[in-house]
């Protein structure tokens, strides 16, 4: 039940983020979730989109350095302590999170979060065992 995240290497140049986003837009690709890891001289744009394969293809064709990574999208109750309760379960089971970020939209009353785990399979097991809802690829497409 992993979903695919696209990572795009962006050098520190004016307008480069715009170029990446407008390329996806003009190809009818919708960004569902987004975050940027930034350093002094470059950034890595991480996105979850509705049409992953098309997005990777068109990015590479346009000379972007892009690759895919497995991540897990999790439904978290959108109320105080909602995220903490999920993190508690992960922490109790020694699951390390490399990074996480939120979706822009949601399709229920719950919030959607993207997690990148050190060990994706172990993390999925913990989430499932604790009845925490993992969002599927199809659900993402239908957002």
């Amino acid at each position: 039940m992993k979903i695919t995240q696209i990572s795009i290497f962006l050098e520190n140049r004016k307008g480069r983020l715009f170029e990446a986003c407008s390329l996806l837009g003009s190809n009818g690709i919708n960004i569902r979730a987004l975050t940027i890891a930034e350093t002094e001289d470059f950034g890595v744009l991480r996105i979850v989109v509705d049409k992953t394969d098309d997005a990777v293809k068109c990015l590479r064709e346009n000379n972007f350095v892009a690759n895919i990574t497995d991540v897990v999208a999790v439904e978290v109750s959108d109320k105080p302590g909602g995220l903490a309760s999920v993190l508690k379960k992960l922490s109790e089971n020694n699951i390390n999170i490399e990074y996480m970020y939120g979706f822009m939209e949601k399709f229920s009353d719950n919030a959607l979060l993207v997690f990148r785990f050190e060990d994706v399979n172990a993390a999925q097991k913990v989430l499932t065992n604790n009845n925490i809802k993992i969002v599927t690829k199809d659900e993402i497409k239908g957002l």
Binding site: Q5, I6, S7, F9, A37, T39, F42, G43, V44, R46, R60, V65, A66, N67, I68, T69, E98
Partner: peptide
């Protein structure tokens, strides 16, 4: 480009 695995950490 083929060596980019998608992680900022790798680049650092």
């Amino acid at each position: 480009s083929k060596m980019f695995l998608g992680e900022a950490k790798q680049l650092d």
